[in-house]
Design a protein around this nucleic acid. Structure first.
Lengths: 195, 195, 195, 195
DNA sequence: CATGAATGAGAATTCATTCAT
DNA sequence: CATGAATGAATTCTCATTCAT
């Protein structure tokens, strides 16, 4: 029974909860420790300092999101279907875990994000990025630089999510919106599907 | 000699520069004052506190962006052309003023932004939002809730911009990317233009 | 028409009002200036700095109190009657001008009071102190050092006043209380009056 | 080794020393910390802010004074004797601890003291107030409202003390002065003692 | 003379991090 | 290993005072 991993998880969850709700700077280490039911000093056994705690939290969340996206994957399905499915998975996951987007969006737009973390993330491709790489190889996507496609895709998805969380959208419209994002990525007059 | 407006502007520009580069919390009032070549105390003659300085800066930047977008507007042109033109204007402006997006993105994802401010901004129509409202009235857009369309549009544009600023795109591809964003908004198999 | 003296008075009254209500430290020069309808800089034409303003205010108030005490004085009356009359005058005056005690009590117990001011005050005997000096010369008072008698007298009067201002006493009981103070000063079994 | 109580006490004593000597506002937290040989931050582990430190100090001093007054109390003695004894105790204590009156008088006349604190203190009976309540019940005192008697008594005692501390009185005269205060409280022509 | 914008020294308070227990 | 009391650097903000207009 890995006692430590429990503490580490408690810690990350406490940090997630507080930072998502109040922002980085309104979430002191002492409060995080309290929320996690450990001593302040103990945090420093798991993370060298606050920055590393936050970076660690980010990587953890990316991992959780990747898992959520990949659920019930069917590698044999058409790419578009896989894309839609993945995005549905992601959106559903984040709707159930709103703290995670709140944190992620703060983090990704803050100067906390170190170049190391950035590099590490780009290596660790996310399942959706993998899908789009495949799609591009198969000439399904518009002839734009891949990073541009990825960035526009992420941005649009985040926007959709934000709208949803502010109750500006209904679940029913979600699938249509996902289709719209796909339309952005694929040439007109095709289904974005081979043949 | 408009002494005051110089000081206030110096202040906003100093704040913009430092916050964009280092984040809210690494930009102490003392440093902002120094950068603006004024005394610390002077800041408080123009803004009640740091929060108001930051909110004031945000509103100022929104204004500048709105002006940039609206440059050389041709109300008689087809909506799509106006949309493309506006987005080109915005992107060019932000490419020349990268600190403004860096600040804006930090701000909009931080807990600095109050719900009031958010609401107020949504009311204060931006030129592009106006265009899209018109387009929706003319049934040019997909049948999605307007806030969803706007959010996806903003997200995608921001993404495009980020990619560009990280040198992942060339100016040449910019127009194609803008077309792609338009594709997201309008139904397939139409040009998104009446008849 | 001495324009200055109006300003100086406005200034002192503004300072009195604000300091009595909020204390020395919650009464900034800028606010005092505003209350007096003059510019901040102008204060420094009348007083070298805040300390001198406060000391000047104190001396002014002492003067006003002395005037109030001496009203309708009858030098021919028995000393006790004069004492009672004086104290009644003072108490009535302060009841009508509560800001003045509030200020005075703060001031006299604060380290604002400079040794110079103290000295100056001891010279400028107040009418009641004069009366008590006379009374002591005529052997009407208890054989205690004069400063002790004065201090006990002042303390008791202040106490009475405080009680009154906190609505713990009625005007009717005021005269009895004044008698009690007199009893403190004179030997028992005398009326404290010659013959 | 009661580490905490030492720190808290050091803190209170440092605050007492500095505030008594220089006033509230000339006693910055940093200086108090230095005087107490602790870090500035440490103050805030014991008191939420400067106000609470000062209020805490006041309550502590009231406690010390109450203890001093009650020393060698003889409940069986006549009330007047108990009164004299108590006042002697108090005066002696304060002569040995002049900082405590200096602080107390500043505090009680400053806007630091909230109405709540005032009320709370009036409830918390002090030994002398208890004595006077008893004396009033036994009809030993003049027929004045109790708060008036208390206020005059406190004022006179404070005055006596001030005179003494300014070397205007000798210890020999102290007892006579205490008698004088008693005379203020009891009807003439009685010893203020039953029978 | 009067003004009030500008200033910066100084004050209170917070919080990441350390280290003795 | 875990803890949390202690710390002081760093931050925001206030306000007496000056001085150019």
């Amino acid at each position: 029974m890995p006692v430590q991993s429990t503490k580490r998880d408690d810690l990350l969850n406490a940090a997630l909860k507080l930072i998502a709700g109040q922002g980085f700077h309104a979430a002191p280490m002492s409060q995080i420790a309290e929320e996690a039911n450990i001593g302040v000093g103990t945090i420093y056994r798991y993370f060298k300092n606050k920055d590393e705690l936050i970076n660690g939290l980010y990587l953890e969340i990316r991992k959780r999101m990747a898992e959520a996206i990949g659920k019930d994957r069917d590698d044999a399905a058409p790419l578009k279907a896989q894309f839609v499915k993945s995005l549905q998975n992601l959106i559903r996951y984040l709707i159930d875990n709103p703290a995670e987007i709140q944190f992620t969006q703060q983090y990704e737009n803050s100067p906390f994000i170190t170049d190391e973390t950035k590099a590490e993330i780009e290596k660790t491709a996310s399942p959706i990025s993998d899908l789009l790489i495949l799609a591009q190889k198969e000439k399904l996507l518009k002839p734009l630089p891949f990073p541009v496609l990825m960035a526009m895709f992420s941005g649009a998805s985040n926007g959709l999510l934000k709208a949803y969380l502010q109750k500006k959208s209904s679940p029913a419209k979600m699938d249509e919106a996902i289709e719209a994002i796909w339309d952005m990525l694929v040439p007109k007059n095709t289904e974005g599907v081979k043949q």
